[in-house]
Simulated scan of single mutants.
Amino acid sequence: MRNIPHSEKELLRLLADGNEHAFQVIFERHWDAVFSTALLLAKSASVAEDVAQDVFTMLWEKRVSLAGVEKLENFLFIAARNMIYSRFRKLASQDAYRQYVLSCFREDGAERVDETAELRELDRTIQQAIRLLPPQQQRAFRLSRYEGMQHEEIAVTMGVSRVTIKSYIVQAIASLRKALANHPSGAHWIVWAFFWVLSR
């Protein structure tokens, strides 16, 4: 890893410039605290893992605006808390919507939706976006989402730490969300379904 300053303010400045090494340092410093906060509020390790991942995805996506953050620890705590509360508020409607989405993929629901062409187009967009990821991010993402490997297994396979794997996957998700941001509005429910799976 390149020489990265210890000053949080300087790290945030580098992060705002898109420095991935600065992001990884921040990720490694704050992951445990963000996860613990989410776990305390959600009382669920799996939900806490999802929320922590979302917090750092947001951090990367909004990095340009973070140079002025005075206390990163407080910022991350508030972000985690707000995401937990938001998830609780939306849980019922999301679960209902998920059941609808899944029903659209069932054979008995095939006649109710005509999304085959859009699904193929979405898959092409996703695969193209994945191919544009940096090699390590791409490999970690594919092993996680396509091979079903856990972070610990990927870390062993790739010879890096578990935290580094989490960092790779967070950045990969942020890049894919950006790539899909302009996907045709007619396929919004497909994109939503994809990210419901992607966030886990």
Rank of each mutant, 00 (worst) to 15 (best):
Ala155Thr: 05
Thr164Ile: 00
Phe194Gln: 04
Trp192Gln: 04
Leu66Arg: 05
Gln150Phe: 10
Ser175Met: 02
Leu12Pro: 12
Lys71Ala: 06
Trp60Leu: 00
Phe88Val: 10
His183Met: 11
Gln94Met: 06
Glu20Ile: 09
Cys104Phe: 00
Leu133Asp: 01
Phe23Met: 01
Met83Glu: 12
Glu70His: 09
Pro5Ser: 06
Ala67Tyr: 03
Val163Thr: 08
Lys166Ile: 07
Leu143Phe: 11
Arg200Thr: 12
Tyr85Ala: 11
Arg145His: 13
Met149Leu: 13
Ala172Gln: 01
Leu143Ile: 01
Ser103Asp: 09
Ala52Cys: 02
Leu76Val: 13
Ile84Leu: 08
Val101Trp: 02
Gln136Asn: 13
Glu153Tyr: 10
Tyr85Phe: 08
Glu28Gln: 11
Gln138Trp: 00
Arg142Met: 08
Ala67Phe: 05
Phe75Ala: 04
Phe77His: 13
Leu176Arg: 07
Arg106Glu: 07
Ala174Glu: 06
Asp17Trp: 07
Phe195Tyr: 13
Glu121Pro: 03
Glu49Met: 01
Ala187Leu: 11
Arg89Gln: 11
Asp95Cys: 00
Phe35Ser: 04
Val197Ala: 09
Val163Lys: 15
Lys178Tyr: 11
Leu76Arg: 14
Ala92Met: 01
Lys9Asn: 07
Gln53Asp: 01
Asn3Ala: 10
Ala187Val: 03
Ser144Phe: 03
Arg87Leu: 03
Ile190Thr: 03
Glu107Lys: 05
Leu59Asp: 05
Pro5Gln: 02
Glu147Val: 08
Arg81Trp: 15
Glu73Ser: 11
Ala67Cys: 09
Phe141Arg: 01
Glu20Met: 05
Lys62His: 13
Glu111Met: 06
Val197Ser: 05
Leu198Val: 06
Arg106Met: 09
Ile126His: 13
Leu133Phe: 00
Asn74Glu: 15
Arg13Lys: 14
Asn3Lys: 10
Ser144Thr: 07
Gln127Ile: 00
Gly159Phe: 07
Leu91His: 14
Gln94Phe: 11
Val34Lys: 09
Ala117Val: 10
Ala79Cys: 10
Lys9Val: 06
Val160Tyr: 04
Ala33Cys: 11
Asn19Glu: 12
Arg145Cys: 01
Leu66Asp: 10
Trp192Gly: 07
Ser185Lys: 15
Ala181His: 15
Tyr97Trp: 12
Ala52Asn: 00
Arg87His: 02
Ser65Ala: 10
Val25Leu: 03
Ala96Asp: 12
Pro5Thr: 08
Gln138Cys: 12
Ile154His: 07
Phe141Thr: 05
Ile26Lys: 10
Arg89Asp: 03
Pro5Trp: 13
Leu132Pro: 09
Phe35Trp: 05
Gly148Val: 03
Ser44Leu: 02
Pro5Leu: 03
Trp60Ile: 00
Phe105Ala: 06
Leu11Asn: 04
Gly159His: 08
Leu176Asn: 13
Gln24His: 14
Glu153Gln: 15
Val163Gln: 15
